[in-house]
Structure formats: C-alpha cells, structure tokens
C-alpha cells in the first residue's frame, strides 16, 4: 500500500472533495488519496473475492454437513448405494463388545434396530466407551464397517465428580442415546 503507487494510479483524477476545502489539494500532493471511483474498483474487487471464497467454504462445508452422518439403521438401508464409499455413521457402542485388536479395536455399534460390526484402525480417543454415542468415519467392507476415526459425541451435560452423580450420568447417557436422532 504505498502512497506513490496510489498517487500514480489515481492522482490525475479530479478530487471529489476539492469543493469543500475551497481549493484543489489532490493532484500534486502524494499523501492525498485519489478519487472515490478508483477506490470503489478496489473495494468491489475485494468484496467479490471475499464472496467467492465464502461461498466455496459454505458450499464445501454444508454440502458435507447437512448429511454429516447416517445413523446405523440408515446406513444399513443405504448400503447398496453407499458401496465402498467413505461416510460417517453414528450409533451407540454396545456394552461389552469392545475388544482390543491388532493395531486397533473392534466393537459393535447399534442404532434403531440395526447392529454393525466395526473394525477400527488406530487407538480410540480417551472418552471412548459404551456410555457415549460415537460417529465413526470409514466404509463398509462386506458386512463389516472399517473405520479409521472415532469421534465422541459429547452433549452439554456437566456433572461434578461425585459418586452419586456418576450413577446419574450413566442413566442420563442411556436416556439420551435413545432419544437423540
């Protein structure tokens, strides 16, 4: 943003402001900026660029996000069309189904009336348990789901760490997994 450049480009034009100051200040003084017309071109250009970038981000984002995941039962129903495509699947980890495996973990995930076996490569996050619903990223391989990312769906319930509250939290967790869609 050098003053010299600006003066070269816009300096020759008549200043719109000269009337109010009583004499012409703009053509010779490099510090004065130039016309509004020139500025408008810059501004409109910047706005267009910003709008395009924003549009792309929104499109890329919400296109993905409006169907951010399928529930297990939906995914099973769409299995023919999904094929080996990569997608996200949400469900509840079945209690007692989590087993350490070579290079990862296996478990069963359920939602609605469907259950799917999952083989996950890599270690699950710390909070991974059968108490909190998860979203897994991967694809079907046969009847199994092969995932490489487990996302924990935490909700906005916070409880102080007291023994009697932990029981309640567990109850809440099972409640919520049933009601949320």
């Amino acid at each position: 943003m050098s003053d010299e450049i600006r003066a070269d480009v816009f300096g020759e034009e008549e200043s719109a402001d000269s009337a109010s100051t009583g004499f012409d200040v703009s053509p010779k003084a490099p510090r004065e900026m130039g016309s509004r017309k020139g500025n408008k071109v810059v501004a409109v250009g910047a706005l267009v660029v910003a709008a395009v970038v924003l549009g792309l981000v929104v499109f890329n984002g919400l296109n993905d996000a409006s169907m951010f995941y399928y529930n297990v039962d939906e995914a099973v129903a769409r299995k023919p069309e999904l094929g080996e495509k990569r997608f996200r699947m949400q469900g509840n980890v079945i209690d007692g189904s989590i087993k350490e495996a070579d290079g990862g973990v296996t478990f069963k995930i359920a939602y609605g009336d469907q259950v799917v076996d999952v083989e996950n490569r890599g270690n699950p996050p710390e909070l991974f348990s059968s108490e909190i619903p998860v979203i897994i990223e991967g694809s079907f391989v046969g009847d199994e789901f092969h995932s490489d990312e487990i996302i924990i769906r935490h909700d906005n319930n916070y409880d102080e760490e007291h023994p009697e509250r932990i029981d309640k939290a567990k109850q809440d967790a099972t409640h919520r997994t049933e009601s949320k869609g």
Binding site: M1, D17, S20, T21, R31, E32, M33, N39
Partner: peptide
C-alpha cells in the same frame, strides 16, 4: 467526512 480525502487511509492500514 466531507473534507477528508482520505489522509486516513495511509496511516490507518
């Protein structure tokens, strides 16, 4: 606003 051709721009950015 009326008189200020934009000496502002220079030191503002």
């Amino acid at each position: 606003h009326a008189a200020h051709g934009g000496a502002g721009g220079a030191s503002h950015v």
